[in-house]
Design a protein around this nucleic acid. Structure first.
Lengths: 195, 195, 195, 195
DNA sequence: TATGAATGAGCCTTCATTCAT
DNA sequence: GATGAATGAAGGCTCATTCAT
């Protein structure tokens, strides 16, 4: 009844998240292995390189975020609902993956072009979920939908990062409300709905 | 007619910007020196360490941004004008300092806590310029001004990064207009002005 | 039948002794590794830093000297015997650890205060063995025992170094006899024994 | 009325002594120049290299010691007097050149063979003064005079170093007396004089 | 599969020395 | 003579990656 292969992969990712969160790009394979309670070499049985481990970590977290978002958006048929979920999911993500905040929003600390590209793609996939939902709920619009989504995401990210890095106090619930207080009227302006 | 000390400091910063832009935190002092056409040791005559060089680069660019913003805001007396300048300055900055985009709009890459802190401070200083301008032009408001500013900045940053990293085409003029098309109505919603 | 960990540590120390002996503080980790036939990084698996390696080398050699001295002193019950052993052990040490002569008999070369302190402590421990033996064999004396020991050690060291560095010919046996020819009468003068 | 060349050479040596005393082999030319209040390059007008500066420093101090010793020995016609002066001069030297203690007795920290050799020669020259004096005052002896001198010097050095490095308290006057208390009887033993 | 000792390329930093002014 | 900016060789140390067990 050995540990499942998938479990060990997850355990490594969990340790990697912890260590990357603390040390950023300076995180070492040694420390991740130690945190996971396994030998350094074992990590290379599951991930081909440090970059690959990093990418896998990001892809895993982001795809979880995407699936959670997809489920949350089921049955939503008003643009306000989509935006509300967007903001909720983003604040929730940060409260759960605090340590990946910089990394996630920055799209790839360890640097190589490939890392950057693959993480960007994961983020785009997650965004697509919201984009689809938004397009299904809003009649044709003269405003580019993707730009709209990107900007409202940016509003949320901007406030979240400000709370985390500057204020030092991040209350997911309150932050979400504050963003929505600005985002929803904005949305209505664009969609032409008047409440 | 020797080169001024300030000039050499600037030359090093310029090379550092180029190299950091390409390699991120993995940039090496060697390469920066080579780009600047000087010996490695010379860099240490002007900057005490790689971290210090990185911080100085960021502080320099951000403070230039702040001063340009300050001048651009002189005489502006409507909140729309402030937001307009905010968006213009941000897009302009990116078109000039392409390589620093991730770093500037988010946090300090090369890791140490001190780096992060000092760059955050510089960014706050720059933001304060807009915050002051905004507070001078808007009557008391029930919406927190700083949050408003942070979110509108986030809107701009979100679209800019999307254009740069995803579309791969970044037209400063057009991007600025697109952001303003969403930001200005948003602002009016909050300030209660109706057109 | 793998090499024991202790063996590798010893092998590194042996190479370090050789290289420090030739180059003094200017010895490089590179060269020590090359002499040991291992990679540079391997040394750092066993010793945290160059200073630590140097200290460990000294502590190892000195503690061996101390234990050999302790055994040699067992059963000795006359002060002359103690001094005789002191001189013998010192000349023997030099003939075995030629390269460490300066370092051992004086202070720690590579500079840091910690190095100096830890080597001094090791030397004091070794001296204590002789001090204990001397105090056990000599009735109360008006002459400070430690000073006596230190000075007689100095006599031996002085002649040894003169033979090694100036004459260039060091015959342990003969040198020991020559020192004893002066040290023993001196001792008797102090202890009041008349032959 | 510019400063004499010799004065500047001396000023550099004085600074070098201060800095070597504090930092040992880790002393830098930069710091010596700063202490002397001159530019780094100026040092190279007077001393060809760091090694050369170091050697010059040692030779200067030792030759001063030699000349003072020579004067002190004038008119001395008993071996006890010679030994007394030997001990006095050595303790005096340490109290005046505290920082050079390790360096002097170790014969050359910065390592190169040439450094070692030249400092040894300087020390031998100084020793010769005492050797001459001793040979002039003592009838032919079956004990080798140089060995005798070297061992008595070693006695003094041993106690001095013990006081300086271990006890941490070095009182020149008292140390000298303590050494003489052992050295003079020793001498008489050899010379056959019975008080 | 799992281990962890070993590797060695590569980096930051220092500092003796030079030389144009 | 005097300066000090510039140089670049060299060294300590790290750490991703490999591989024999």
């Amino acid at each position: 009844m050995a540990v499942q292969e998938g479990d060990k992969r997850q355990a490594i990712l969990d340790s990697a998240e912890k260590v990357f969160a603390v040390h950023g790009a300076a995180a070492t394979i040694d420390e991740i292995a130690k945190d996971a309670g396994i030998a350094k070499g074992t990590i290379y049985l599951y991930y081909a390189s440090k970059d690959e481990l990093y990418i896998s970590l990001m892809e895993d977290r982001i795809s979880t975020y995407r699936e959670r978002s997809r489920r949350a958006l089921a049955g939503i048929d008003a643009p306000e609902g989509v935006i509300e979920q967007l903001v909720m999911m983003r604040t929730e993500f940060v409260s759960q993956h605090w340590g990946l905040l910089i990394t996630l929003f920055q799209a790839g600390i360890p640097g190589s072009a490939q890392v950057h590209e693959r993480i960007c793609r994961a983020k785009l996939n997650a965004q697509q979920v919201f984009l689809d939902a938004l397009e299904n709920t809003v009649p044709r619009l003269d405003f580019d939908m993707e730009s709209l989504l990107v900007m409202i995401s940016g509003m949320a990210d901007g406030l979240i990062m400000h709370r985390v890095f500057v204020s030092g106090e991040f209350d997911p619930q309150q932050t979400a409300e504050e963003v929505l207080a600005l985002a929803l009227p904005t949305l209505r302006t664009v969609t032409g709905c008047r409440e």
